[in-house]
Design a protein around this nucleic acid. Sequence first.
DNA 1: CTAAGTGCAAATGATTTGCAGGTAT
DNA 2: ATACCTGCAAATCATTTGCACTTAG
Lengths: 149, 149
Amino acid sequence: MSVAARKRYAAMAAKLKDSGLKSTPQRLAIMRVLAESKGHPSVDGIYRSLQRRFPGISPATVYRNIMLIKSLGEAVEISLAGSASRYDGRKPYPHPHIVCVECGNILDPELASLGDMTREVTAASGFEIKSFRLDFFGVCPACRKKSGS
Amino acid sequence: MSVAARKRYAAMAAKLKDSGLKSTPQRLAIMRVLAESKGHPSVDGIYRSLQRRFPGISPATVYRNIMLIKSLGEAVEISLAGSASRYDGRKPYPHPHIVCVECGNILDPELASLGDMTREVTAASGFEIKSFRLDFFGVCPACRKKSGS
DNA sequence: CTAAGTGCAAATGATTTGCAGGTAT
DNA sequence: ATACCTGCAAATCATTTGCACTTAG
C-alpha cells in the first residue's frame, strides 16, 4: 500500500470512528480497497477482491457499506448508463472523468476552469448547486491502436 | 405544437425515412413527444403520455424506439443514478443539464467555455473524445422556498 | 448487554429479449 | 410478400430490503 493510499485509508477509518458507527472488519476492508484502487472499482469488483479474505462476504454488505462511505463523504459514485456504478475513494469530491467506451477504463484528468463553471451555473439558474458530474466518453490510446478507430 | 417543435419533429421523421426503417405510427408518435417535450421525459413518461392514443402500447416498444432514435443521433440520454433515464429530443447533441434533486426537474443552462474544455481533455489524455456529459445537481429556486434549504 | 452489522434470499425497478402475430413498404 | 415492428410475458442486471443471527463497543 502506497503512502497516499495509507493516508486515505486512515482518513476514512477516522471519519468512520468519529461517526460512532462500528468499525467492522468488512467495512474497513472495503475502505482499504477504495483507498488503494488506482482504477475505479465497481461493487462487484470490490466484492470479488474481498472474497479471498472474507469467504462468506455478501454483495449486499458491499452495497450497504459503499452507501455508508458515500454518505460520510469519503467516496464518490460514477454512475454509468447501462452498467454498474463505479466508485472513487481516492478523490472523494466531484471531479471530471474520462471513460474509455471500449475497455471501460476511467481516468481522472486535471482540468482547470471548472470552479468558474459552477459559479456561472449558480448565477444563471438560481439553483443551489450541491455537486456536479463531468464525464468525457471516448476511445483511449491503447484501444485506438487495437480496433483502428 | 410550436414552430420549433414541428421543425424538430420533421427533422427526426426525415432522418427516419432516410434510414430505410419503417415509419410506424408508434415510432412517429414517440418522436413527436420527444420533439415537443419542454421537460426531459422518461421512458415511462412517454409511455403514459401515449396510452391515450395507443391504448395497447407497450413500454418495450418505447424502449426499443428510444434506442433507435438515439442511434439515429436524434435524442440524447440523461442517465441518472438510481432512477430511470430521461431523454432530450430537442437538443440531440451533448449539452449540460441542471437537475433539481428535490423535484427532479431538469434545465438546460447556456454555458460558454465548453468546447474549449473538450479540446483541453483531448490534448491532455490522447483519447478520441466522442461525447461528454456535464450535469449539475442542486435545489431549484422553487424547492428552496418550500423546504428551506 | 444491545444496537448495529452481516449473510442470505427474496423483492424491486429499470431495461432487454424471445416469440407469435401484425403492418408498412 | 416479407422484412421490420408490435405487444406481451418472461428474463436480466444492478441494487435494495426483510429477517434471523452475530458482533463491536
